[in-house]
Nucleic acid binder design. Structure first.
Length: 593
RNA sequence: GCUUCCAUAGUGAAAUGGAUAUCACAUAAGUCUUCGAAACUUAGAUCCCGGGUUCAAAUCCCGGUGGAAGCACCA
């Protein structure tokens, strides 16, 4: 039961009788003082039927008679629609009883795999790893809520140069002596004295060194290759590093309420690498260039050389689209090869209608390359959607990527701790002490709401005080609204199955139902657009509309029993819908705060 | 150099091609004093600049200006 759809159908029927076959789009009013809904279709199609927009609108309007709705025409041809309280009451009661809170599933559910997380074995998670699980988890939940079959895979970065670098550095620093003993029994040696902290030191050290020490880089390359070839002892060492790291990564993600169905990594795609490369070779798509095996993926008009002005100038290209490198000079494979092999692996697992990737927007080119390759070789079926959702950077207040005061990258763990501390302080003001889990729910929820309120592709400013303000468009404001409702429902002894009947009478109550209608339609909009910010703002608007009623109407001391039941019904309704919205966004609902 | 993305009150954001550009914070003036003081009213914009398409442009197209990112053997 969506009022907008109902109105659209009604109007379409009326204009059909007038000999007009057009799709009618009814939207929420942007002039609330004039009407609740509006449609502009008369402005759009009047010309086609040789009519003036206003005349057409008037004609349609004169034929529109529907109980519960009022139609009127405004210059130059808008049709304004007002909904009467009886209809809104009916809707409110319907949602109150409905398991799905009035939100329909999509007509054609998809089978989707979402790839988000982006954790890298051997590297500690840092601020840059926050957005992917925040956005990915929310999209996953939204799609599931609307009926899609969705699985999530974290796609661990566990197969690249960082592994070679880490192992080489550990070896040089004496951590691996046992492994490099001649008759070593690799299977049974445990990494000694290597903890996560060790890895956190060794990898950055190696990473810096590779840029200045060419031999070191070459050797790391070789080690990486050994790991990829499962050569001992490199492979055994690698496995142990991976295990150590994954445990920690899981902990980090669960702090963010991000959960994955699969913990596959790039290494799991390894068994498909040969098959992938063979496919390109057999189909004649791959060729050798400077010792590397590459695939040309440029389309017409792309990658056209720009004539050099002098001999020693670097070759530049118009609309650059460099070939994808499947194999590098030493036979090792790269990011894009693994990506394509992963697509092959996923398509052998199941038939996905769509595979969605969430990474920051610097990786746009990589996915264009991987997707084109996969389509070229037929690894991804023609009708399968490969979608890269790229997000912007989380910046500090100075507008630059978020760093510590000394310029270091901030660990993800530390960000969460910061949020928990801040939330704890706030809770203390409300007389709640030593509830770390509650503080986490509020602190992390605050950050998530702040993040998801922005358009995904844009950079935004991480402002902890703003996120955690209990005032304004924030997560805590919504959690608090629910907590206040809980308090009322408790006092009135309202249970889920109480027989409450909502009767919308005041303007404030009407605003609540309209806000609810907008929230419910926001799910569909967000579903179509791969976005989430509209759900955030609609959720806030609903909480806000409720606060207005709350502050002006004393519910518990209401004399009329019938009216009190109606108000309590509204409380329960709003609570359910806000809670659902937060859950879809991956934010915890709290009873008290 | 080439390619992509972005530019909206003081700040941060929003707006299927539609009416008077919306919301939050902050600021200023006033109201309410409560089921949990997180409530209400009012004030503020050259939608970066210049053209074009359209009955209608913040939105689409073209040209500037400014910012961010990427440009084959890292991931």
């Amino acid at each position: 039961m969506d009022l907008r759809e109902i109105l659209q159908e009604k109007i379409e029927k009326v204009i059909e009788r007038l000999g007009i076959q057009e799709k009618v789009v009814v939207s929420f009013s942007n002039r609330p003082e004039l009407c609740d809904y509006q449609t502009n279709f008369a402005l759009i199609c009047a010309k086609k039927y040789n009519l003036k927009p206003f005349e057409l609108a008037e004609k349609v309007c004169n034929n529109l008679k529907e109980e519960g709705y009022k139609f009127s025409v405004a210059m130059p041809g808008f049709i304004n629609i007002n909904v009467e309280n009886s209809v809104l009451s009916e809707y409110a009661n319907f949602v109150l009883k409905d398991d799905r809170l009035g939100v329909q599933k999509v007509a054609h559910p998809r089978k989707i795999l979402i790839d988000y997380g982006g954790a890298n074995v051997a590297k500690e998670l840092h601020v840059g790893h926050l957005r992917s699980p925040i956005i990915g988890e929310a999209l996953k939940r939204l799609y599931r809520f609307l009926g899609d079959y969705v699985v999530s895979d974290t796609h661990l970065g566990d197969w690249g140069l960082q592994m070679g670098l880490t192992i080489l550095q550990l070896k040089e620093d004496g951590y691996l002596d046992e492994f490099f003993n001649e008759n070593a029994d690799y299977e049974n040696i445990k990494l000694k004295n290597v903890t996560l902290d060790t890895l956190n030191e060794e990898y950055p050290k190696a990473s810096k060194r590779k840029d200045i020490d060419e031999n070191f880089k070459k050797l790391a390359d070789t080690y990486t290759l050994y790991v990829q070839q499962k050569k001992e002892p490199y492979f055994s060492i690698y496995k142990q590093i991976r295990e150590l790291s994954v445990e920690e990564i899981k902990k980090n993600y669960s702090m963010l309420n991000a959960y994955f169905d699969y913990w596959y990594g790039e290494s799991d795609a390894d068994k498909y690498i040969d098959e992938t490369i063979k496919l390109f070779v057999d189909k004649g798509l791959a060729y050798e260039s400077d010792g590397a095996l590459v695939v040309n993926i440029a389309k017409e008009g792309e990658h056209i050389p720009i004539p050099k002005k002098s001999e020693d100038e670097v070759q530049r290209y118009k609309n650059p689209m460099p070939p994808a490198i499947l194999k590098k000079y030493n036979g090792g494979v790269l990011y894009v090869t693994t990506e394509i092999a992963t697509i092959m692996m996923r398509n052998k697992m199941d038939n996905f209608d769509e595979i969605i990737y969430l990474t920051d927007n610097r990786q746009g080119n990589h996915f264009v390359q991987a997707f084109r390759c996969a389509k070229l070789a037929g690894i991804s079926p023609e009708n399968q959607v490969l979608k890269h959702i790229s997000f912007g950077t989380m910046n500090g207040k100075d507008g630059k990527p978020f760093k510590t005061r000394s310029g270091e990258t901030v660990k993800l763990k530390d960000v969460v701790n910061m949020l928990v501390e801040k939330a704890s302080e706030k809770l203390k003001e409300n007389g709640i002490e030593n509830d770390r889990e509650l503080a986490r729910k509020i602190g992390v929820g605050a950050m998530k709401f702040g993040d998801l309120s922005n358009i995904i592709s844009k950079d935004y400013v991480f402002d902890i005080d703003k996120f955690l303000s209990f005032d304004g468009k924030t997560g805590p404001y919504i959690q608090y609204t629910i907590a206040r409702i809980n308090s009322i429902l408790d006092k009135a002894n309202v249970k889920e199955n109480c027989n409450l009947k909502i009767d919308i009478v005041s303007e404030e109550e009407k605003e609540i139902v309209l806000a609810l209608l907008k929230l419910n339609s926001a799910y569909g909009v967000s579903y179509e657009d791969y976005s989430l910010n509209l759900i955030c703002s609609s959720t806030f608007d609903l909480a806000k509309a409720f606060s207005t009623l709350y502050n002006n109407t004393k519910i518990l001391s209401e004399k009329s029993e019938e009216r009190k039941k109606s108000l309590l019904g509204i409380c329960l309704l709003v609570k359910k819908c806000l809670s659902n919205a937060l859950t879809v966004l991956g934010i915890d609902v709290v009873e008290k705060m």
